[in-house]
Structure formats: C-alpha cells, structure tokens
Design a protein around this nucleic acid. Structure first.
Length: 255
DNA sequence: ATGGTAGTCGAACTA
C-alpha cells in the first residue's frame, strides 16, 4: 500500500495541482488536510473518475480533511471521540485493507502566548483518546497529517532561533511525544534519520527559496504496520510549482 | 523590518 498525506491549503486553489500529482504518483491512499471546502465543493467526481473512493469531512473556509482510496473504505468516522457534533473539521478515518487510517489536521495554535495554544496541546490528548477508543498498539493503524509541531532539532532549519516559538515549543513536543507513546512510529524518521528534510515552508520572507522549513507533517504507524514500511519520502516537487501549497506531500509505502 | 505571503471572502481572520 502506497500512502500519501498532504496539507493542500485549499482544494479549490489547488484543484488541478492535486489531481495532477495524484495521477502522476498513483498512491493507493491519499489523506488531505486544509481542503477548506464543504463536501459538495470537494472534487469527489474527479477522484472517482481516477478510480478513488472518497470520504470527506468538509468545512467552509477553514480546516477540512479528506481521504481518497483506490482500495475499499469502510467504517468511515468523523471527529474526535469526545465530540458528538464536531465544531471544526480536523479528523477523519476509515478502515482500508484492515488498517485504520486517520487524516488529521492539528490546530496551529497561533502563538505560544495565544489562548488557542493550550487547546492545541489538548488536541493531541483527545486524538490519542480517539485512537485508543477504536484500535490498539498491536493493531494496524496509520495516523497521518499536519501535526503543526517539529519533533526535534533535525526537523527545523534553525533549532536555536526557533526554540520556544510556535511549531517548535517544548510543550508541543511533549504533547506529540505523549501521542507517540500510545505506540506510534514516525515512519519517515525510521527510514530517513538525517535532518534538514522539511514538509512546510512559510510563504513569507522567501522561506522556501532559503530552505527555511520545518518537518511538521508525518505518517505515524503502529508497530504492527510500521514494520511493513519499506520506504518513506517527502516530495518537494509540487512545492516548486506555481501557486503551491505551503506544505509538501509525504509518501510512505507498506508491504 | 513584530515584517513577510497566501486563502477565504470581500473586512478581518487563519496560517
């Protein structure tokens, strides 16, 4: 199974680029974040024509997640386990070939001093509770998406300058660690331990041109399936394109 | 340079 995760920063703005990328790379499963459209405006028909089943948890203007799969999807569910009526579309999952696959968009947090920041930290625990409510570390599960935190010094262009700032704050790293301690493995790190490999570059200040990036998008897998991961990579090609998303897709292959 | 750019939506918010 070839799986990809990509924060597209508006599927409307990225419609052609995303469909072209999927046609070229031909992943079996694609998890998307920040689609920024309600379900009726998601390009479901276009993906069906490419051979994908589609599940969406859409929202107008903000957030929005989706999963497209060439393999059948069952048991589709939306939202965190503690919310009956999700106020923000940040989590979607489906079972694909016996694997519970999650597409997640963790809140940005705005800044460490913002009232939104503690909510971001709590989200990690709520996500862990959700995962724990329907799977176990011994079962195959893949949690992928935009986690809005860089795990360690290898994942930030300037760890000294960025320490304590948004996306590289010790509280965020602790929250991520506690999620991982459920029994999830960062499969990109597993295969590519060297630093300087990023998935997000700020649109501002020529950050991409200067390679001032962060690695904040992950494919996390339980050991049951992480052991089947044969390769993992970041595809920065679409980040070079015209009007790109600020994130690059992450691709992982499982035997 | 507490700026800078992009998306949504048509002013101000989110990232």
């Amino acid at each position: 199974m070839k799986l990809a995760t990509w924060n597209v920063n508006s599927i409307r703005a990225r419609h052609d680029a995303v469909l072209a990328w999927i046609s070229r790379v031909e992943p079996d499963v694609v998890c998307l974040q920040e689609t920024k459209v309600e379900d009726d405006d998601f390009p479901t028909e276009e993906l069906l024509r490419l051979g994908y089943a589609v599940a969406t948890a859409g929202q107008k203007s903000y957030n929005g997640v989706a999963i497209a799969s060439r393999l059948p999807m069952t048991q589709v569910a939306i939202g965190l386990v503690d919310e009956a009526e999700p106020s923000e579309a940040r989590l979607l999952r489906a079972t694909i070939e016996g694997v519970r696959v999650y597409s997640v968009y963790v809140p940005n947090g705005k800044s460490p001093s913002s009232p939104a920041f503690p909510g971001k930290l709590r989200f990690f625990g709520r996500l862990r509770d959700t995962i724990a409510s329907e799977t176990s570390p011994g079962s195959p599960a893949i949690v992928c998406g935009d986690f809005n935190v860089a795990p360690d010094d290898r994942d930030v262009f300037d760890p000294v300058g960025q320490r304590g700032q948004l996306l590289y704050h010790p509280d965020e790293q602790r929250a991520l660690s506690e999620l991982l301690s459920f029994g999830l493995v960062d499969v990109f790190r597993l295969h590519r331990p060297e630093g300087g490999q990023f998935t997000w570059w700020d649109y501002r200040a020529g950050a991409f041109r200067r390679n001032q990036g962060f690695r904040i998008d992950f494919v996390l897998a339980t050991e049951a399936i992480a052991s089947r991961c044969t390769s993992a990579s970041i595809d920065i090609e679409p980040r070079h394109g015209e009007r790109p998303s600020d994130h690059a897709p992450v691709v992982a292959t499982f035997a």
